[in-house]
């Protein structure tokens, strides 16, 4: 073997070694989560740190799904996340369209405002929002959460939608307007259908963000009935901190919708992130 071949072989060995290490790092925690959730409670203490338990069981999932409030939490989270995703997408489509197609007074300030909201600490808003929402009956209510999440996600979603609108030639809605359409009709019938991938990506992003939000849900919701999955899981953890099997089973369940949406949106990750990183 020549030196060059050796060098190449060395390069590829290194390459795959690094990648294998990172894949292990990325997946191991999830593997472990899943493993613990399948371990029977009796074996947890004796076999807690084995790579695979000697016996597996689905009973933790059964318990979580039938004897706990998790189905309620799950449903609440779905309601909140889906509503937020739809609402944000509608509102951000409008704003993104305005930013993409019009020059108007105040545009600079609107963009500036949206950029700033991406920078400031949202925890700042916890106390005032709580005080404003209490008299309005928006605490302990899913509607309150939806409103908060919608507002928080609009700026990023707007930039994302704008980048999709920018990719659609202006000629198209002009042609439609000449064909006899109102601008709004052209927007609905011509532009929006062409932005479907962008809409899907925005829905996915916002859904995932709303599904994962913890702090405002903790602060604004105290009733179990209105708790979302993150809050439910966290209270479950602090209350029954020994029931690892059930907690991890609940964790795996919480993971599923987020992962589903992740696969829906992963093609747009790069665009989304660059929209966020460069503009935000």
């Amino acid at each position: 073997m020549s030196a060059a071949t050796l060098k190449r072989a060395g390069y590829w060995t290194m390459h795959y070694a690094i990648i294998a290490l990172y894949v292990a790092f990325a997946l191991f925690p999830l593997y472990w989560l899943f493993k613990v959730s399948l371990t029977p409670t009796k074996l947890l203490y004796s076999e807690g740190v084995r790579m695979w338990p000697s016996r597996t069981t689905w009973e933790n999932y059964g318990f979580v799904l039938t004897n706990s409030d998790f189905p309620r939490f799950f449903l609440n989270s779905v309601i909140v996340s889906v509503s937020t995703a739809v609402l944000v997408t509608v509102v951000a489509s409008g704003a993104g369209y305005a930013l993409s197609r019009f020059r108007f007074r105040g545009k600079f300030w609107l963009v500036g405002l949206m950029l700033i909201t991406q920078m400031f600490p949202l925890v700042m808003l916890i106390s005032p929002i709580f005080r404003i929402f209490t008299p309005l009956g928006l605490t302990d209510s899913l509607l309150g959460l939806i409103i908060v999440y919608t507002a928080f996600n609009i700026p990023f979603a707007t930039f994302l939608m704008q980048s999709f609108f920018d990719g659609i030639p202006k000629d198209l809605e002009e042609a439609a307007m000449i064909d006899g359409a109102h601008r709004f009709t052209a927007f609905r019938q011509i532009i929006l259908p062409l932005t479907l991938p962008g809409i899907a990506a925005t829905l996915g992003f916002v859904f995932t963000a709303a599904w994962s939000e913890l702090l405002f849900a903790l602060m604004l919701i105290s009733k179990t009935d209105a708790s979302t999955f993150p809050v439910g899981l966290l209270t479950f953890v602090s209350k029954f901190s020994v029931d690892f099997g059930q907690m991890t089973a609940a964790g795996v369940l919480a993971l599923i919708p987020a992962c589903l949406f992740f696969f829906l949106i992963q093609r747009y990750l790069v665009r989304g992130l660059t929209a966020g990183a460069v503009k935000g």
Partner: peptide, 19 residues
Amino acid sequence: APRARDIAMVFQSYALYPH
């Protein structure tokens, strides 16, 4: 508004509705 003028236009880019 354009829709009220009853004029047709052929764009350089054609601007056909792709969907």
